[in-house]
């Protein structure tokens, strides 16, 4: 793949479980870098929302993980990986309104069962790999060669 040579990592953040106060730092940083790179604002918004939901998911649901993002001339790729516990029923997790979030997350305004739906909606391609006891890796792609026409 020719694009591999020009693929560049632009953020790489460690995300701690339960650390709501830092939630959004990775997305915020990514957003400002994309702006400097001159990426169209509609695509930045799609990427920011996707990354933010992924970040919050790591905080709420996992034992901790990482968020990184790479940019190539073709796409922005956001990678969220965690150290478990893994998603028991992936289809269910993508159902709007389904959530296993705790009270703390709900108090913060999250855990309404819309996170993965938003991620699916705002990204152009999504790959989910999960294994109980090992963890989950989600790769979300936002293509640069389109106008982001799935957002109003």
């Amino acid at each position: 793949m020719t694009n591999e040579e020009v693929r560049q990592e632009i953020i790489n953040f460690e995300i701690e479980a339960g650390d709501f106060s830092s939630g959004g730092e990775a997305s915020s940083k990514l957003k400002s870098i994309l702006r400097k790179l001159g990426i169209p604002s509609q695509l930045i918004r799609k990427t920011a929302i996707t990354t933010y939901e992924l970040e919050i998911n790591i905080i709420i649901h996992t034992f901790g993980g990482r968020i990184s993002a790479e940019v190539s001339p073709k796409e922005i790729k956001v990678i969220a990986s965690d150290q478990g516990p893994g998603i028991e029923d992936v289809d269910k997790a993508f159902q709007p309104g389904y959530s296993t979030a705790n009270e703390k997350a709900r108090e913060m305004g999250f855990g309404a069962g819309m996170g993965l739906c938003n991620i699916k909606r705002y990204s152009d391609n999504l790959e989910v790999r999960t294994k109980i006891g090992e963890g989950t890796t989600i790769e979300a792609y936002i293509y640069l060669d389109q106008s982001g026409d799935n957002i109003e």
């Binding site: 929302i49 939901e53 305004g109 999250f110 309404a112 819309m114 996170g115 739906c117 938003n118 957002i151």
Partner: peptide, 9 residues
């Protein structure tokens, strides 16, 4: 709900 807010664009 913050995820609802994120649905605004």
């Amino acid at each position: 709900l913050m995820s609802d807010v994120l649905a605004f664009s």
